[in-house]
């Protein structure tokens, strides 16, 4: 079997204020990446960007987005990402930057990584908790995200992922 290979870039959108993350939307991110590629690599970059690029996943709570590029030229398109300084949102400029955390060949490997990564974030959050109730909440969230669960039911894993990230935000 021959298939078109893609690369999935898991990026974290970092903003100065975390509350602004709620405004993240797929089409704004797509537009921001498109503009960045055009300014960095011109018409040629845009031409490559138009083949098979997409935003596959946006998590407005943790700020994680997943971008899909063709494998043949993902490095060229990726090199435009550091030059993104802001996202335009309803005519309003939101300063931010993209931080790539993982490059995967399939959505599945990215998902596995993301679960592990979210869990790490929860652990990092633990020392910052102020009350005991918050701590308990984070601990519960840590236990709820595991790879074993993923292996058991392949179908529900999308939902799992959403749950984890929601908890993630509650803890903060």
């Amino acid at each position: 079997m021959v298939r078109l290979k893609a690369r999935y870039l898991l990026c974290e959108v970092c903003m100065s204020e975390r509350s602004m993350l709620r405004l993240l939307e797929e089409k704004d991110i797509f537009q921001a990446v498109k503009t960045a590629v055009t300014t960095a690599h011109g018409q040629y970059g845009l031409a490559l960007f138009n083949i098979g690029s997409a935003v596959r996943y946006v998590n407005a709570y943790t700020g994680v987005v997943m971008l899909r590029f063709r494998k043949a030229h993902y490095q060229l398109l990726w090199s435009a990402l550091p030059f993104i300084t802001s996202i335009w949102k309803q005519g309003q400029r939101v300063p931010c930057f993209f931080n790539c955390i993982h490059v995967g060949g399939t959505i599945r490997t990215c998902q596995k990584f993301l679960i592990r990564y979210s869990r790490q974030q929860l652990f990092r959050m633990l020392p910052h908790c102020k009350t005991e109730a918050e701590k308990q909440q984070v601990r519960k969230a840590v236990l709820s995200c595991s790879l074993n669960q993923l292996r058991q039911d392949d179908d529900d894993d999308d939902n799992d992922d959403y749950d984890d990230d929601n908890d993630d935000d509650d803890g903060k």
């Binding site: 974290e12 970092c14 100065s16 490095q75 990726w78 090199s79 990402l81 550091p82 300084t85 300063p95 931010c96 930057f97 993209f98 931080n99 790539c100 955390i101 490059v103």
Partner: peptide, 17 residues
């Protein structure tokens, strides 16, 4: 400023340019 920093993997890729 914090917003001028970029992640290490991004910079490793930027080196290709």
């Amino acid at each position: 400023a914090p917003l001028n920093l970029r992640g290490p993997y991004d910079i490793a890729n930027l080196g290709l340019i």
